[in-house]
């Protein structure tokens, strides 16, 4: 299983607005399951990378304070036609990535 994410981006005035929606529970490991009395196991996206035109431009680290099914919007100076890759990894080693061309 890989992490499912959807990204889109468009260039306005030389700046690409890159917006991602990621499907992920962002479970902190501290929340209790009332039916079993045990905590839900930790499952948390820890690292997010954004590359534009083959160069890594943003390197992010997240905690459980980021909402479930995270939304991220970043801006990068780019040209239309540039290829954008967003890749994510969680604490269990599960990965996901999305690559697309800027309009």
């Amino acid at each position: 299983m890989s992490i499912n994410l959807r990204t889109r981006g468009s260039v306005k005035g030389g700046v690409a607005e890159i917006k991602s929606l990621i499907r992920h529970p962002m479970e902190s490991g501290a929340r209790m399951d009332q039916s079993t009395g045990k905590p839900f196991p930790m499952k948390l996206i820890t690292n997010v990378d954004v590359s534009v035109a083959g160069k890594k431009v943003i390197d992010a680290q997240w905690s459980a304070n980021v909402s479930a099914n995270p939304y991220m919007h970043v801006n990068v100076a780019a040209n239309s036609g540039d290829e954008v890759t967003i890749s994510v990894e969680d604490n269990t080693g599960e990965k996901g990535s999305d690559t697309f061309k800027l309009r």
Partner: peptide, 18 residues
């Protein structure tokens, strides 16, 4: 909550939900 490191063409801007 989170840390974003920028390099190259990235702009100092982040929008997210916490």
């Amino acid at each position: 909550v989170c840390e974003y490191k920028f390099s190259g063409a990235a702009q100092g801007f982040v929008s997210t939900r916490i």
